[in-house]
Simulated assay, not measured.
Amino acid sequence: MMSKIPQRFKSPQGLAYIKMGSGPSLVLIHGVGLRLDAWLKQLDELAQHFTLYAVDMPGHGESDCFPQCRDIADYTDVIADWIATDVSKPVLIAGHSMGSMIALNFAIRYVKDCVGVIALNSVFRRSNEAKKAIQSRVEQMKDKLTIENVTAPVKRWFDYPLQGDDVQNAALCSEWLTKASSEGYFQAYEVFCSNDGPAIEDLTSLPLPAFFSTGKEDPNSTSVMSETMASLCPQGIVHLIDKARHMAPMTHSEELNPLIIKFGQECFALKQETSYERA
C-alpha cells in the first residue's frame, strides 16, 4: 500500500488530479462519494508501467463542483476537457463503480482519444428490486442527508464482521464519504442511481478493447452485469474475482493489478500496430 498520496495538481477546469510514473497514459476515475485516494493500492504498481493520472471526480476530493453535471455524459465531458488540456493522449481509461460508467461513456464517445477501457464493479440493467432499493436511498438522502445514510454503502461494500485489512479499508471509505462535499456527493449519487449502464447498441459497436471485472459477491454490480457487457462488446473480456465485493480494487489488488497492466500493454501495442499498418 502507498504510504502517501502525491500532491494534487489543479486543472484550469477545476479538477484535482495526480500524475506519476512514465509511459503511455492511464486515467483512473473513482466512484461516488470517494476520491482518487481510493486507488491507493493501484498507484505505485501501475505507475511502473504507465504515466498514471488519477482524478478527483467533479464535486469530490479537491475538485470543484460542476452544477451542470446532470447525467453521465456531462461528467464525461468534464473529464474529456481535462484530458484534452492536461493528459497526453491517447489514453487507456479505467473507472470503478460510477467511474466505470464515465470511462465507458468516454470510450464510446471519444474513440479517437482512447485505446481501451476498463470497467470495474460496473452496473448494467439493474433488476426491478435493485432499482426500487436504490431509489429509496435517493429519497432518504433528499429528505435528510445524515452521516448514517452517507456512510451506509460501506456496509454493502465489505464483508462483515470486518477482518484483516478490511478494517482499515472500511475505515478509509467511511472517512472519504464523511468528508465528501454534500452537494457533490448527492449530485453524483442521483446521477449514478438514474443511470442503468450504456446502451446496448453502443456496446455492440464499440471498436476498442474493453475489460470488465467485478467481485462475485458484489450484490449490486453483479457478475452477470459484467459478463453481459463483455459479451456485447466485440473486443470484450471479463474477469470475476472470488470472495470479493464492491471494493475489489482495494481488497483484491494483488489479483487485479497484473490484469490491468497486461490489458493496458496489449491495448497500446494494438494501437501502435494499427497506426503502423495505416501508415
Score class of each variant (00 low, 15 high):
163 Q>S: 12
161 P>D: 08
216 K>P: 04
11 S>K: 07
7 Q>K: 15
76 T>V: 06
92 L>V: 08
104 L>T: 11
229 M>W: 04
9 F>L: 13
270 L>Q: 15
69 C>T: 15
256 L>R: 00
52 L>C: 13
271 K>D: 15
267 C>D: 09
94 A>V: 02
123 V>A: 01
208 L>Q: 09
179 K>G: 10
191 V>F: 01
231 S>I: 03
213 S>F: 00
48 Q>D: 13
96 H>S: 02
189 Y>E: 08
113 D>P: 06
122 S>R: 00
96 H>M: 01
36 L>T: 02
84 A>T: 14
92 L>Q: 05
190 E>K: 12
93 I>P: 02
256 L>T: 01
170 A>W: 06
95 G>H: 00
239 H>Y: 11
244 A>W: 02
51 T>M: 10
157 W>P: 01
70 R>C: 09
29 I>E: 03
250 M>Y: 03
189 Y>K: 08
227 E>H: 02
52 L>S: 12
59 G>T: 05
265 Q>P: 07
226 S>W: 00
108 I>Q: 09
77 D>V: 13
49 H>I: 11
190 E>L: 06
161 P>K: 07
255 E>F: 12
204 T>A: 07
36 L>V: 02
215 G>T: 03
247 M>N: 01
12 P>A: 12
188 A>K: 01
78 V>Q: 15
227 E>R: 11
107 A>K: 07
229 M>F: 03
271 K>F: 15
71 D>W: 04
74 D>S: 15
186 F>Y: 14
93 I>M: 02
123 V>R: 00
66 F>D: 10
278 R>I: 14
169 N>Q: 10
155 K>G: 10
85 T>M: 04
203 L>I: 04
50 F>H: 11
235 Q>R: 12
43 L>G: 08
19 K>R: 15
148 E>P: 02
215 G>D: 04
70 R>E: 13
161 P>R: 08
113 D>K: 13
33 G>F: 01
129 E>Q: 15
255 E>W: 06
254 E>D: 15
110 Y>G: 01
98 M>V: 12
196 D>A: 05
138 V>C: 13
256 L>V: 09
81 D>Q: 15
146 T>D: 08
13 Q>M: 11
202 D>A: 09
165 D>I: 11
115 V>K: 01
16 A>N: 14
128 N>E: 14
111 V>L: 04
4 K>L: 14
172 L>M: 14
153 P>N: 06
7 Q>L: 14
72 I>K: 01
95 G>W: 00
130 A>L: 06
187 Q>H: 05
23 G>R: 11
187 Q>S: 13
12 P>F: 02
118 I>E: 00
216 K>V: 08
229 M>E: 05
96 H>G: 01
64 D>V: 09
33 G>T: 03
266 E>N: 15
2 M>P: 04
151 T>V: 14
102 I>D: 03
251 T>K: 00
131 K>E: 11
150 V>T: 14
261 I>Q: 13
233 C>V: 15
162 L>I: 07
27 V>N: 08
160 Y>L: 11
154 V>G: 03
145 L>T: 07
67 P>V: 12
83 I>W: 07
224 V>N: 03
124 F>M: 03
256 L>F: 01
125 R>N: 04
87 V>W: 05
93 I>L: 06
196 D>C: 05
6 P>R: 05
